Computed example of a mutant assay.
Amino acid sequence: MMWTWHNEIPEHLVVQGGPKTLARVDVTFNNPDAARGGGEFRFDWPVYSDWGIGLTVRESMNSRRVDWVSTGPGNSWGQEAYVDDLLYEIEPRKTYKPGSKHTQKWFEPIERPHLNNNCKLPTREGSRLTLDVPGWGGSDHVGASMDYQGTRQTLTLYQGADRLAQATYNTTVTAQAPRPDRQPYRLVLDADRDASVSPYSSATHTEWAFTSEANATDRPAVLPLIQLDYAIDTDASGKAGRGREDGCFRLPPAGCGRGGHHLLAHRGPLLRRRAHLAAGPPYTRRVLRPGRTARSPLRLASRHRAGQRP
């Protein structure tokens, strides 16, 4: 619970809470390794500070609970959770409306690189490019591996055909842009993990093509790396139901504007389908799953009208 008063000393320091004034968040922790402990915390981010308030505490990572979150002005919330020596996840920073209901799932089996506003965004400052991209995000979470034996990732930045920087295991690459004018760049992330870590998301390959030029000011500018969100309903073991529409993919409008070409292709032994995503928020498209058990690769592509694409 958090409440902020601005330019006033309140006469009453009691704020009434209840289902109509608070937000409800149904939280599920699906620890992929029940033998490991973990912890979490929902950090409060007040508008007057660049720091989140709080400290992670030990909690069961195989549990469900209901959180009631304050919705007053002056702050936002950002939760973080981890499994010991395995995975650290960070949800987007957000505010909640009074009386709203939300669902939050941690350590989902489908994982891939993802960025959000509660972690370091890729930036350019003058000629310096800095891109921090962990490879194991679930849903809308940033996800970084803490198992350096069972998981691997390689992040490479190109300008045209020239390789500017590469990082192995480390999630960050930095490089000097060879020219100040607008030039094409490409960021490539390859990640894989042992079956002992998880039987799902065994390997991912992600590419972002984007353009960049020197900033008009000395302040860092966020690089335009667009991405697709998804929501796929699975049980605690990572299995999805069969024979129904349960795949939902969304291109977030923030940071990339509207308009563009967004293509979804799910290719497998039982399903071969290409679909254009909707042109307006929330840029959503559902996908039919196969009618019997199968594993198949999923390929997602999107191109913004300005030329950026993941």
Rank of each mutant, 00 (worst) to 15 (best):
R112H: 11
N117Q: 07
N117A: 01
N118F: 14
C119W: 15
K120A: 15
K120W: 15
K120Y: 15
L121R: 14
L121A: 09
P122E: 14
T123P: 06
R124T: 11
G126T: 01
G126H: 04
S127Y: 15
S127E: 14
R128S: 13
R128N: 09
R128F: 11
L131N: 04
L131K: 06
V133S: 13
G137R: 06
G137K: 03
S139M: 12
H141S: 07
V142D: 10
A144C: 08
A144G: 09
S145K: 02
S145E: 12
S145I: 02
M146D: 08
M146G: 05
D147N: 05
T151G: 08
R152W: 15
R152I: 02
Q153W: 10
T154H: 09
Y158L: 13
Y158S: 11
Y158H: 11
A161P: 05
R163I: 09
L164W: 13
L164R: 04
A165T: 01
A165Q: 03
Q166V: 07
T168F: 09
V173Q: 04
A175L: 04
A175K: 07
A175M: 01
Q176L: 10
A177G: 12
D181Q: 14
R182W: 00
Q183H: 10
Q183F: 10
Q183R: 11
P184V: 02
Y185R: 00
Y185I: 00
L187I: 02
V188G: 05
R193V: 01
D194V: 12
D194N: 11
S196F: 13
S198V: 00
P199I: 04
P199T: 04
P199E: 05
P199H: 09
Y200D: 00
S201Y: 02
S202E: 07
A203Q: 13
T204D: 07
T206G: 06
E207Q: 15
W208I: 01
A209P: 02
A209Y: 05
A214R: 13
A214Q: 06
A216C: 01
T217L: 02
T217V: 00
D218G: 02
P220A: 04
A221M: 05
V222Y: 02
L223G: 12
L223A: 10
